[in-house]
Write a protein that binds this DNA or RNA. Sequence first.
DNA 1: GCCAACGTTGGC
DNA 2: GCCAACGTTGGC
Length: 151
Amino acid sequence: MNYWLMKSEPDAYSIDDLKKDKKTLWDGIRNYQARNFMMKDMQIGDQVLFYHSNAKPPGIVGLGEISKQAMPDPTQFDKKSNYFDAKSSKENPRWHCVEVKYKDKFKSMLSLNEIKEVKPLKDMMVIKKGARLSIQPVDKKDFNYILKTLG
DNA sequence: GCCAACGTTGGC
DNA sequence: GCCAACGTTGGC
């Protein structure tokens, strides 16, 4: 089993939206590294830290789980979508997405500042400079620490 | 709103 | 294949 951190801007899609929807397609990812994690490494049952980016403050707010493995991202074929990609085709789709289901919203968030202050979490990718990647692998020990702290 | 970091594009 | 220009991310 693998562990992940997935970023979403709460204005676009928040942990409350996921709680309401119960599950969502993680579509619109247009970065090859992030896509490759979804296509090659994510398995059903993998645990996901839900992270609010561009938020005040940014941080980890909840827990999700991969509920469907990678499939072609439907938004790439939708001319009306912001994520439409004219260079992609159904025969050879460029972008994939997974389905994430809701598991928990933490009673209190773990803000980015707090992550930086917690020594055991000092190696987390999300606090590294320039870590823009919207899907990041998380160490099991970091995941367990966070769950123990917030759960 | 600014801007550093960094990914992508396209001319050569 | 290099690299300048450009676009995006995301913290502040």
